[in-house]
Every structure is written in structure tokens, then in C-alpha cells.
Write a protein that binds this DNA or RNA. Structure first.
Lengths: 141, 141
DNA sequence: CAATTTATATCGTAATACGATATTGTCAAT
DNA sequence: ATTGACAATATCGTATTACGATATAAATTG
């Protein structure tokens, strides 16, 4: 009984440690975004656009999916990015209902700086995250 | 030149893929919390309390640190948790300035359900996260 | 042509968290 | 015993974000 309880407690601790690590990463990321002069959401959008598989532009619908947002929330986010001159809209030639979003030079520069910092940080904390995930895999079949 | 650009593009793609996976996890987590009748923040607080190393209660300051929140934001969160009968406050005997927060039965029950779901989900997506983190480690020395 | 898709727009709402600031109670050290 | 630091609580206003509901317009597709 005591050992069963211990196991469950260990499970909570591992889950909590994982979330704690995640929160610290997110906190780092938000701070980094702000020092770069953008909001965290704007940063994430820039990355989702530039880091889209195969392309470096996306439609509004694609961006919404990558950011796990509703379509019309994404439109609002893009509006703010355009206002800050971080991205630009270009109507698609293939399908004129679609609008392609891509980074401006300012957006590129901002994202480049942030991505370097994040890459560094993820290298730093990656092992901890991985080890916690492995621990979860071994706990409780 | 083309290969250098390709490398950089790959870096963005990996970073973006990592954030995408993270966002889907967080989205899953938020949906799960809501179906369990709590807000995402309340869920995270419950886990941070129950999963605190060694103990299963925490002071307000400790909780603030684990959640990466300001002290007085944490007080507000605890107020809402108390109002929902998910946690209770107990003044510490060792140091009467401190207040220990612990889960009620309802809090325990709610967290248990959510933790099982999250454990499952993390087992599912863990490998993808790990492989993305590894890819970041190999990219760009 | 009709139905669907994509993007945009508007309005009100909700959830959070923050800064700034203050107060209360407790502890610890001199 | 007093003083200074610490922990928790409280209040107020602000900001950010995202949502649902709903509508419109333009373009595509069958």
C-alpha cells in the first residue's frame, strides 16, 4: 500500500516537474519576446510562418491551425503584426480567396534574434525535458 | 549558399514544429481541464501543489515560483480555488506567517482524473518532442 | 447557378496576469 | 523590546488575449 501510494506520488511529481520545466521555458520565451519588442503571440506567429514546412509563407487558415487558434482570432493577430510591420499580406494567385502571410525584413530580423536565443535555451533544457518524458514512459505501464 | 539557407530554414522548421507540438499539448490540456470543470490555471495549480517534491502542500510563495507567477496573482488564483472547494488553506505551525495550501477531496479527485489523461497523452507525444529536441541538438554546433 | 470555402469585420464577454501600493501578522536579530 | 524583513492578503486599474456569435464579401468548385 505504501509503495503504491509512493508510485502515485512519484507520478504527480514527474508530471509537475514537466509542467514546471515547461512553464520556465515559456516564461523565458515570453521575456525574450518582450525584450525583442514583440508580444509572445507575435513571436509565435512569426515562427509559425517562417518555419512552415516547405514554404515560408502561410494562409490565414494554416496559421490558425499551427497556432491552435480560431480563424478570426488569427486575423486579429495578423492585423497587429501588419500594424507593427512585422508581416505582410499578399493575395494568392492560385486562389484569390487566400491571403499569403510572410515576414517583412523587420519580422525576419526579429525572428532571427529570437530563434537563436530559443535554440540555445532548448539545447540547455532539452535533456531535462527528455528525461522527464522518459520517466513518464517507464512509470505505470 | 543554398545549403546554408537550407540549414537555417531547417532550424526554423524544427523550432516551429516543436512549438506546434507544444501548442497542441497545451490545447489538449486546456480542453481536458475544462471538461473536468476547472480552468487550465486551476489544473496547473492543483498539479503543482500535489506534485511538489517531498510534500503535497505548498506555501503561497512556493506555488508562485512553481507556476512562474507573481505572489499576488497566485493569491488570487488560490482564492478562486478555495471558492471552488478544490484546495484549502492551513496556517503553518512552524512559521505562522506562512499558509499551507493543500487539495481537498474534490481537488484530489479532479486532479487524479486529469493526471491520468495527461500521462497518457505525454506518452503518446513524448517521442515526437524528444526527437525534435534531439534534432535541435544536432543542428548548428 | 448554387454551395462551399476563405478571409474579414464587429460586438460583447471572459479569463488572466500585471504594476503599484498598502496593510496585517509574524519572525529574527540586535 | 524594538526594528527590520518576510509572507500573505487586499484593492484598483490596466492590458492582453481569445472566444462565441454573427455577418459580409469575394472566389472557387461542382
Amino acid at each position: 500500500m505504501a509503495s503504491a501510494k509512493k508510485l502515485i506520488k512519484a507520478e504527480y511529481e514527474t508530471l509537475a516537474a514537466f509542467r514546471y520545466a515547461l512553464r520556465r521555458f515559456i516564461h523565458f520565451s515570453e521575456t525574450a519576446a518582450h525584450t525583442a519588442g514583440v508580444t509572445p503571440q507575435q513571436h509565435q506567429a512569426l515562427l509559425a510562418i517562417k518555419g512552415f514546412p516547405e514554404r515560408d509563407n502561410v494562409t490565414v487558415g494554416e496559421l490558425a491551425e499551427r497556432l491552435q487558434l480560431r480563424h478570426h482570432s488569427t486575423v486579429g493577430l495578423i492585423d497587429r503584426l501588419v500594424a507593427e510591420k512585422l508581416v505582410m499580406r499578399t493575395p494568392s494567385n492560385q486562389d484569390r480567396r487566400r491571403v499569403l502571410i510572410q515576414l517583412t525584413n523587420l519580422g525576419e530580423k526579429t525572428l532571427e534574434k529570437l530563434s537563436a536565443m530559443h535554440h540555445e535555451q532548448l539545447k540547455r533544457i532539452g535533456p531535462e525535458l527528455t528525461s522527464l518524458l522518459e520517466k513518464l514512459n517507464s512509470t505505470k505501464q
